[in-house]
C-alpha cells in the first residue's frame, strides 16, 4: 500500500525536473522509462544493471538510490484501479525475499505470449488467439512456437445432413460403411464421438497446411507469467504518452497448483 500511496519513483523524478527541459528531452526520457521490450520488463524485474532505465538514471540522476523494490513497483500499471495494493505488495515482498528471491529468465518454462488475431476462413473473419511459448533446444538455440489456438472459426465442420450416420448394426458387416464415410466430408462430424474433445491446434495445423485460413491482423499481444510459485500475472503493452508505459503488469492473482493448472487449460488452452 505504501508504494502506491507514495506514487512512483519516476513520477517524482519527472515532476522535479520537467520545467528545465525541452521537447527532445521529454521524448528521450519517455524512451528510457517506457518498458519497450519484454526483455526490458524481465531485466527490470530482476534489477539487472544493464537495463536501459538504470543506465540512464545513473547518467542523469547519479545521486538517486534505486532498489529492486522500486523497479518492481514501477512495473505495475497504476492506471488500473482494480489492482489490490496489498496483493501487489505481497507479490513484491515474495519475489524480493532476501532468502529466496525469484527472478525471470527469457528461457524459463511457464511464460506464454497470447497473440490476439483476426483470422479469415472461408470468407468469414473472426477474432482469435494464438498462444506461443519459447522453446529452448539442447544446442542453446531457441524459437517461439505455437502452443495453443482458439477461434470460433476453428472447429469441426457442421454437417450438411445430420441424419447421415453409421447404422447401429455396422459391426455386422465389419463396418463396410466406413468406405463411404471417408468420402462424406460434408457430414464427417456425424461419425465422430460426441465426447471427443476437438483439438483446435491440430485443426489449425490442417487449415494452415491446406491454405484454408489466413491471418489478417495482429492487434494485441499479452504475456502470461506462470513460472513463479503461487502467482500468475499478465503483462500488457500500454501505448500511451506517460512515462509509465510499455509492457506493464495488468493483472495479478495468487493461485495454488491446481488453480495454476486450471488457468493454463481455461485461459491459455494448453493441456
Amino acid at each position: 500500500m505504501r508504494y502506491f500511496l507514495l506514487g512512483f519513483l519516476y513520477i517524482f523524478i519527472n515532476q522535479s525536473v520537467r520545467s528545465q527541459f525541452e521537447d527532445d528531452f521529454l521524448i528521450r526520457e519517455k524512451f528510457f522509462f517506457e518498458v519497450g521490450q519484454i526483455e526490458e520488463f524481465q531485466e527490470r524485474f530482476n534489477f539487472d544493471g544493464k537495463t536501459k532505465l538504470l543506465k540512464y538514471l545513473s547518467d542523469e540522476q547519479p545521486e538517486l538510490e534505486i532498489n529492486r523494490k522500486d523497479l518492481l513497483v514501477s512495473l505495475f500499471d497504476t492506471s488500473n484501479e482494480s489492482f489490490d495494493p496489498s496483493l501487489a505488495e505481497a507479490f513484491i515482498n515474495n519475489v524480493n525475499d532476501s532468502i529466496n528471491p525469484y527472478y525471470l529468465d527469457f528461457y524459463d518454462n511457464g511464460w506464454y505470449a497470447e497473440v490476439y488475431c483476426i483470422f479469415e476462413y472461408n470468407g468469414n473473419t473472426d477474432n482469435g488467439k494464438l498462444i506461443l511459448k519459447n522453446q529452448f533446444n539442447p544446442d542453446s538455440s531457441s524459437k517461439w512456437v505455437i502452443a495453443g489456438v482458439s477461434s470460433a472459426l476453428i472447429k469441426a465442420p457442421d454437417s450438411k445432413d445430420p441424419l447421415k450416420t453409421l447404422s447401429p448394426v455396422s459391426h455386422g458387416t465389419d463396418f463396410i460403411a466406413l468406405y463411404d464415410i471417408m468420402r462424406d466430408g460434408d457430414n464427417i462430424q456425424n461419425y465422430i464421438a460426441n465426447d471427443y474433445p476437438i483439438d483446435t491446434l491440430t485443426c489449425f495445423i490442417s487449415l494452415v497446411h491446406n491454405n484454408k485460413i489466413r491471418l489478417k491482423q495482429i492487434y494485441k499481444v499479452k504475456y502470461h507469467f506462470l513460472q513463479i510459485p503461487k502467482w500468475v500475472f499478465t503483462v500488457d503493452y500500454f501505448n500511451r504518452k506517460e512515462l509509465s508505459s510499455g509492457w506493464l503488469i495488468s493483472s495479478l492473482i495468487r493461485v495454488n497448483k491446481e488453480e495454476k493448472k486450471k488457468y493454463k487449460a481455461d485461459i491459455l488452452k494448453i493441456y
Partner: peptide
C-alpha cells in the same frame, strides 16, 4: 533520431 538502444542479449536461432 532522438535515441536508440539495443536489447542486450543476442539469441541463437535454430
Amino acid at each position: 533520431w532522438v535515441e536508440c538502444s539495443i536489447v542486450n542479449d543476442l539469441k541463437k536461432g535454430e
